[in-house]
Every structure is written in structure tokens, then in C-alpha cells.
Amino acid sequence: MGSDLFISYAWTSDEHREWVRLLAAQLKALGFDVLIDADVDYGDDLNGFMRRVDDAKRVLLVVDRNYVERADTMPNSGVGKESRWISEVHGDREASWMSVLFVNNPDFTLPAWLGDKMPKGFNFNHSSNSLQEFPGAEQVEDLWRWIAGLPTNRDSATPIATLRERATRLEEQTLRTEPSQWRSPDLEGELRFAYADAPQRTFRWGFGDSEFAFSVSGHSNDSIYVLKDYGNAVGLVQGEMPDDADLARHLVPGRSVTPRVGQSVVLMNEHGRLALVEIVDVQRETTHIPYTAPHVTFRWRVIASS
């Protein structure tokens, strides 16, 4: 599958090259797959490169004065080769396939082969004497709307600020449910676990034969269901806290136990190792404003001697 955009430009100066790379980075940040000529080794596979240009959904020429000169008078330069290849493909494509971005080219000069074709152009020229003529967000939006195939008329467009807010909400929700958020390599620790957001309402810690899964669901204001769904056994410590060597006797054959705040649970994983979990705090869901998500705060410790 081809890239969303191929950018052709001249290495006029370090500053110009950096400007084009920053523009490409901006477009990549918007989600476009962008290929620039810096990614191409002309000596390796010219036919392969021509196919990449041909497969690109859009082609953008960043035309400064130096680009025009190289395209017209230096056929063996990178710009000269690209101009020749693009011109060969251009005739078979719809008009919207290629566009021109003018920068440091106030006369809007085009390479000779484009002189009578009148491609769509984007004015990124600026004048040091007038900040009002400096290109900004509006020009960038025009550019990405062309890449995306959207109309230039923005009457029905969703404002960028709204799109950003939506994207932020989506990413925040994705992060809340991302499995890596609900895992720790530590053999002991403490966590405020908002279990409703976690996949299978499960938090995992440790690694290898010391890995444990803590699965819970709500019960009451001061207690929680602890399930053995992802372990071998679970048990509730009754009475005084026993020595580590005596924890296994508290395991029970049932699927769950219901510890209250201040009580501890014994977990046994599929390798027969043990972990101790102390319930520090339990919070049920409250739907009034401000909303409070259900959570349990607990401390865990993998029993070294197990």
C-alpha cells in the first residue's frame, strides 16, 4: 500500500531542508504516512522509487526558486530525476493527485514542464516585513485537507479544536484500559486499583513463576470480592496474621473470598507460589457529582519462601 503523501523538494540549504522535515513531521503527527526524498537512495533501485511515487495517493512539490532551477537545468540532480519521473506519471492521474507548495518563491515560478498545467498551489511564502503574511495554521489546514481529499470549503468542517478534544478523550480512554497500565514487575507494592477500567478487572504483578493476578469486583462499602479466576487458589486469612510458612492452610476450594478493609488474602498462582494481599481501602461507585469510580487500595507481597 502506497504512502499518503510523497514530498519532493530541493536541498537548497540546511534551513530549508529542516523546514521541509518539520512540515513532514507535522503531517505525520496528523496521522499521514509521509515519504520524503531523503528516504530515497537514487542509486539503488530507480524503478522501485518510481513505483513508490506512482503508488503515492498524493504528491507535493515544495517549490522554491532553487527547485525550479534544478528541475529546468540540472536533469541529473535529485530534483531533475524526480521531476522527470513525476511528469511521466502525472498525465495518467487526476488533477488532485499532485500539488505545489510555494515557499521562498514570491513570483510563484514553476518548473517548465508544469507551466501550462496549473496545479493546485499552497502559498507558504512569507515576508519578513509583514507578520500578517507569515504562513500558519490556516495554510497547514488547507494542506492536510487536500491530502485527505476534503473540500476546500470549510462550512461543514469540524473545528480543529473540537477534533483535538475528541482525540484527547479517545486516547485518555484507551490509556485507561491499556493492559500495560494494570501490571507491575515488582514483587511487592501498593496500588489504588480502579478495577472497573482494567481488562477483566484484574491487576498483575511479578514475573515468571512469581507472577500473580488479582481479580476483584465490588461487594459492600468496606469489602470486596477477590476471585481466583486467574490463579490456582485464594483464601482469607482468619484471626491473627500467621507466619509466611503457615499461609497455605488458609487457602479454600471456592472461587472467591470477601475480605473487609484491614483483612488479608492469600493467593496461590499456577506455579504453587504464594502472595499476600492486604486490603487497605474500598470505595464503591458514587454516581452523584463529583463521580467516584469504584476502587480498592491494596498492598501485595510475594512470599519469598514459597
Rank of each mutant, 00 (worst) to 15 (best):
F108R: 15
E190R: 14
E240F: 04
E18D: 14
R164F: 12
D107V: 11
S127Q: 05
L23I: 07
G239I: 06
E172K: 07
E138Y: 13
S305R: 05
E94I: 01
F207T: 12
R65S: 07
L187Q: 01
P185D: 04
E165D: 15
V302K: 01
F207K: 14
Y42A: 03
R201Q: 10
S83Y: 13
A167D: 13
L23S: 04
W19P: 03
D14S: 09
E278A: 06
V237A: 03
A38K: 09
R21M: 14
N269K: 09
P259F: 08
L35C: 14
I36E: 15
V265M: 00
Y9P: 12
S184A: 10
R154W: 03
R201M: 06
V140L: 11
V20A: 01
G206Y: 00
V216P: 00
I303K: 00
G2F: 00
T12A: 07
G121T: 02
G149R: 09
H90P: 09
M241G: 02
I303C: 05
T152S: 05
P185V: 05
S220Q: 08
P253I: 13
E190K: 13
M1P: 13
N153G: 11
A304E: 13
E178D: 15
S180N: 09
G206P: 00
N47C: 04
H250D: 07
S215T: 12
N269F: 03
Y67A: 07
F193Q: 02
W11M: 09
L150W: 05
F6N: 02
E285R: 15
A148I: 10
D246V: 04
S96D: 07
V282Q: 00
N76Q: 08
M118P: 00
S156L: 06
H126R: 12
W144I: 13
D222E: 07
R145T: 03
V265T: 00
G218L: 10
E133C: 00
M118Y: 01
A112D: 14
D244G: 07
E18N: 06
N66T: 09
R255M: 09
P135H: 08
M1Q: 09
N123A: 09
V40S: 04
L35F: 11
Q26L: 08
G43F: 03
F203D: 01
F122M: 08
G48C: 04
V302I: 09
Y42Q: 03
M74N: 09
G80V: 02
D229M: 07
D222Y: 02
I86A: 15
V261R: 01
R17D: 13
T292L: 13
V79C: 12
A233K: 11
L251A: 03
D92I: 05
R260Y: 00
S130D: 15
G235H: 01
A148M: 10
V89F: 06
G121E: 03
Y225V: 14
A95F: 08
W113E: 15
D92Q: 04
I86S: 15
L175S: 12
A38Q: 12
L170R: 15
V89M: 11
F32E: 05
H16M: 10
A161T: 10
M50E: 12
A24T: 11
A71P: 06
V34A: 08
T202S: 04
S223G: 06
R70M: 11
T158E: 05
D54G: 10
D41C: 10
V252L: 02
R164A: 15
S83D: 14
L175C: 13
R284W: 12
N129E: 08
V20L: 01
D281C: 04
L170K: 09
H288E: 12
P159Q: 10
